[in-house]
Write a protein that binds this DNA or RNA. Sequence first.
DNA 1: GGAGGGTTTAGAAACCCTCCCCTACCCAAC
DNA 2: GTTGGGTAGGGGAGGGTTTCTAAACCCTCC
Lengths: 331, 331
Amino acid sequence: MPSIKEVARAAGVSVTTVSFVLNNKGNISDETRQRVLNVIADLDYTPSAHARNLRDNQARVVGYAWDKTRDRFNPVLDNFLYEMLRLCEQSGRNLLLFSNDAEIGLDPYRTLIDSRRVDGFILSHTRQNDPRFEYLYNANIPFAAFGRSNSPIDELVAWVDVDGSAGTAAATHHLIQQGHEKIGFIGWPIGSVSGDRRYFGYMQTAERAGLPQPDKYVMRATNDSASGYHAAQHLLTLPTPPTAIVCVSDVIALGVLRYRIESSCQVAVTGFDDTPIAEFSYPALTSVRQPIAAVAELLVEMLFLQLDERDILTPHHLLKPELVVRASSLK
Amino acid sequence: MPSIKEVARAAGVSVTTVSFVLNNKGNISDETRQRVLNVIADLDYTPSAHARNLRDNQARVVGYAWDKTRDRFNPVLDNFLYEMLRLCEQSGRNLLLFSNDAEIGLDPYRTLIDSRRVDGFILSHTRQNDPRFEYLYNANIPFAAFGRSNSPIDELVAWVDVDGSAGTAAATHHLIQQGHEKIGFIGWPIGSVSGDRRYFGYMQTAERAGLPQPDKYVMRATNDSASGYHAAQHLLTLPTPPTAIVCVSDVIALGVLRYRIESSCQVAVTGFDDTPIAEFSYPALTSVRQPIAAVAELLVEMLFLQLDERDILTPHHLLKPELVVRASSLK
DNA sequence: GGAGGGTTTAGAAACCCTCCCCTACCCAAC
DNA sequence: GTTGGGTAGGGGAGGGTTTCTAAACCCTCC
């Protein structure tokens, strides 16, 4: 493979000149520039990323943890990954993936930074008091997070989050508009940050609308459709069953739909995340869609501002999700 | 950040010695080794990947194209990605993702290799006469492909494929064992490599079993559940409708299931790929599961053998998929 | 004719690591 | 006391790039 030195010799100029041509710096006459460019094309020369990286101590690479162990079905993150990829490449950077099983903790982050393989990170799967926030912030490593850690450090770091509470509120509101008065909720066990927010959106909307006893219609389920099925069974065999159910996730909603088919009742159902399940289920599932492309764009932008040592004007973004109405919530 | 020079000075040894300790080379007395290791720990020293890469002209990085535009729902590849990631990390390598929309072609591959950012590639989404095979083979760039290109060059390169024909054969066979005699097939339009193979598995099994007129029960559909729904509608309103349908994909099978519910018939259904759809649908969908972990392991192993300039004993692997039987195909 | 200014170009250091080639030393054998 | 062989460790080049500093060149103008 040709080096910059050989290009210089072949073009009859110095290495400096070639470098200037490559990086659009310095004062190079048009004629010289053209000659150098021709030689570069002739020799099929591409600068070595290694040498460049060594020289200015930058990897031009962003790290992202791909964690499929926690939820093996998460198409939202698939798209998130794709969007980030596109955006990184637009600015000439690449995306380095690493695995980060919950137990491993900070080690992969440390290793990648210490060996200079990445310049910064995009985080997702954030959790309460996420230790990564503290480590990265204290070590002064650029990062931007999809989600918050629900601790004071959130104020100091760049994050984008989707307002889950607004999502379930929209779903509940939509059901009220459809004429429902007894609306139930099937959520995750209390204690998960996003699960609790989604519950809050439902409850607040139900209370404000003056629905009767919404708390009587709340069930908790694990995130699978069997669990959703049983929760639905319980709710819908109450003396005065709800006529609509807001679900904390599509998978749980699917269990409700299954019960709905089996028992031939007409309960309206909404899910959350607008996974492909929602589109493909029968009936098609009304669901809350997160603006993933917007999230990715804001995160990447904020990360790059940090990498360029420029200021972030608005480091925190809380985005509104969108309710996608389909057959499952319509009469 | 400390460099190897500072470690050497702090430990009172030469740079060479530190390097030897780091790489377990040369003759270093236990005492010296221990002293160096202590200093390394004290200073929290990690060698610069950039310098290493430059020195021995290696990136220790594998490239993989993440292409979400072609099929935005492909959980199989999610898992594939995760498995590859784990395997790469086990050998101290990282995985670099890049986007590769169909139109872009070879450019991203060229760029990554020319700039030495990756040492080799794992390919997926292979297609007929895949141009990547020829380019990479001729340029002598290490790679291993999930899928074949169906051209003579397949003989020369490393690939792993899953026998789609065996998958639909197993599904058809299973349905025959369940007592079905009129078995239909809903496939993709003729011309896709994997689609045609899956069709072949069905047809061959049906013919060998002496099923009556299997070709009368073949429909073609695009890969969405509405299209599957209509194909099912057509098949099941024939004068003598099939009692079971083999589908080329889970998504199409889902459309069939929808029709089955609406028309309250009991047609047995099988899908392909064992996506989460299969598990979550109602009834749960019998489907053909690809041994993704095994595919990833073989590919990564073959790629690493090439990177280490060692011989691959068996460069081609055709794996058998597994039929996962669920309610949709049982009486 | 030469000083001075602006435009181009050259030389060389620095980034950090690995590894080839030496040296210094010790001990045993002649 | 010299040689020989083995072990522990050091010196320094080289890998490809960017960029700082300095020099060369060409004009213009006095």
